[in-house]
């Protein structure tokens, strides 16, 4: 990976870009990089399908519903998220980090951009994982799809917020591949508790929503707390 210098002839802005501008530019950069290299999202999607197959044999069940289904779905998604988080700062570690740090932008923009990129990856992952889950294990999934999508969206925000922070924390560590899952998974336990409890009735044979507001509220609280914490502390990871 090399950092791309701005092509000759392009005007260089005199004032440093604002937070929003910098963030969108960084997200576009990450996304373009992902489209070109296809290193993260396909791996996450493939991983999730593999885990579904593993669960099929591990549980010796052709179809699952209720608490089993929500447990399998959420554990799989969180493990696939670990794959994404491990790769989140890959380009920066391979040399692009210097360029990123030299850019005259607010450090918070880097965090927001990384979290947004991760959120995007998670959404793409679910576009593959959810139909695969319905096809392979839970044929009754379609009944409560809107509610389930709401749970997924809120939980993804939490996973992205904490995932980007953990990715930044582990980026400098030698045993990165070990540190990321060990640190990320305990931190995600509240998300798992709330999301699995919220989706359990949605995945029953007769789908119904029960206690949805309480669990969505809990995920929302988690999202807010950790976005604030991450924005407050992320700057210190990039100081050099």
């Amino acid at each position: 990976m090399t950092t791309t210098a701005s092509p000759p002839g392009r005007k260089i802005a005199s004032a440093p870009p604002g937070l929003w501008q910098a963030t969108t530019a960084l997200v576009r950069k990450d996304f373009a990089h992902e489209v070109r290299t296809r290193q993260t999202v396909p791996a996450m999607a493939l991983f999730s399908v593999t885990v579904f197959v593993l669960f099929h044999f591990g549980l010796a069940r052709d179809t699952i519903a209720g608490s089993l289904a929500s447990g399998v779905l959420w554990v799989t998604l969180l493990l696939a998220a670990v794959v994404g988080v491990t790769r989140l700062f890959a380009a920066e570690r391979e040399g692009a980090g210097e360029g990123l740090l030299l850019a005259p932008i607010d450090r918070t923009a880097i965090y927001i951009a990384k979290a947004s990129a991760l959120l995007l990856y998670l959404a793409l992952l679910e576009v593959v994982a959810l139909p695969a889950f319905a096809l392979l294990l839970a044929p009754g999934l379609g009944d409560a799809l809107p509610d389930l999508l709401a749970v997924l969206a809120l939980a993804d925000v939490g996973v992205a917020a904490i995932g980007a922070l953990v990715a930044g924390l582990a980026a400098e560590a030698r045993a990165r591949e070990v540190i990321v899952p060990l640190m990320l998974l305990p931190l995600l336990v509240p998300v798992l508790i709330a999301a699995a409890n919220a989706s359990r009735p949605l995945l029953e044979a007769h789908a119904h929503a029960a206690g949805l507001a309480k669990w969505l509220g809990l995920i929302g609280l988690y999202d807010v707390v950790f976005i604030l914490v991450a924005v407050a502390v992320f700057d210190y990871l990039l100081e050099d």
Binding site: E172, V189, P190, A194, K214, L218, L221, V225, V233
Partner: peptide, 22 residues
């Protein structure tokens, strides 16, 4: 880095207790 971890985990303690208790 250790400080960032300690702060994040410190904030995690009450949120986690709330979630498990619920």
């Amino acid at each position: 880095y250790a400080s960032v971890f300690a702060i994040t985990a410190g904030a995690f303690v009450p949120v986690n207790f709330l979630a498990v208790r619920l």
